[in-house]
């Protein structure tokens, strides 16, 4: 479903991502791990079109999406979240969700003015959808609060659900458990598994080892922008290169 070959990105002569190739099969959850600064988020920014790559090719659903602008890629069904959540702070939780769908009627200038009835009907449908999703995400009670007033963990969840509202085929989650309190991590896991059952594919960046190893069917390990290992979670955990990469930064011990 998503296939990346030879992806390379330089920042001022420094290779942040170096000849990276990876593949995500439809209906799977794939993890992307690596020590801090290994270039994981850059990979996300490249795939989702926010950065332009210096070399390489990104294929999604059999189409070449290299160099397309972010909104076009998102409209094809590849939607990402951010490491530091980016909810719309001055809009309510409910508005955050209903603004998201890509087929919203009335987001064009003309139909917003001319077709009030179609807009109304569509908004009713989207509103119900959003409320259902809010119940699913245990955010229903907070639907009329401004997003900025939610605790960080709930903002993270809101951001995830906002992305779900766009009906993505694949979601790129950038550290879905960062800053999330421990009991909510388990919930996040449940949400992701349920969404997977609904047919969404996932590529997940995560530092929380137990979380990502438990979810993923396949894991890629990045260090200094290079792919150093890949395999099933248990294979990767035993890989000496991976252990070394993490030992070098003292992260694996803390993470496991």
């Amino acid at each position: 479903m998503l296939k990346v070959t030879g992806l390379t990105k330089e920042f001022g002569g420094l290779r942040a991502v170096d000849d990276l190739s990876l593949e995500v099969k439809e209906g799977t959850i794939v993890g992307l791990i690596g020590p801090n600064g290994s270039g994981k988020s850059t990979v996300f920014n490249l795939i989702s079109g926010f950065y332009r790559c210096d070399a390489g090719r990104i294929e999604f659903s059999g189409k070449d999406i290299t160099g397309l602008p972010p909104h076009v890629i998102a409209r094809m069904g590849l939607v990402r979240t951010f490491q530091q959540t980016r909810v719309f702070p001055e809009m309510t939780v409910f508005e955050n969700l209903v603004v998201a769908p890509q087929d919203n009627v009335g987001e064009g200038f003309i139909d917003s003015l001319l077709f009030p009835r179609a807009v109304k009907e569509d908004q009713k449908k989207k509103g119900e959808e959003a409320l259902a999703l809010l119940r699913f995400a245990d955010l229903y009670e907070k639907r009329d609060e401004l997003a900025k007033n939610l605790p960080y963990g709930e903002q993270k969840r809101l951001e995830l659900m906002r992305a779900v509202m766009t009906r993505p085929k694949i979601m790129l989650l950038d550290e879905p458990t960062a800053g999330v309190a421990r009991p909510q991590v388990e919930k996040m896991r449940e949400y992701i598994l349920k969404l997977k059952d609904q047919g969404i594919t996932f590529l997940i960046i995560e530092h929380h080892m137990k979380f990502v190893m438990g979810l993923s069917e396949w894991v890629y390990v990045l260090d200094h922008g290079q792919l150093i290992a890949q395999g099933t979670p248990s294979e990767v955990q035993k890989n000496p290169k991976v252990i070394e990469a993490y030992l070098g930064t003292g992260r694996m011990a803390a993470a496991v």
Binding site: G12, N45, F50, H71
Partner: peptide
């Protein structure tokens, strides 16, 4: 000026 890489074109 170098184009700041963190600035993205939307």
């Amino acid at each position: 000026g170098q184009r700041r890489e963190s600035e993205v074109k939307l």
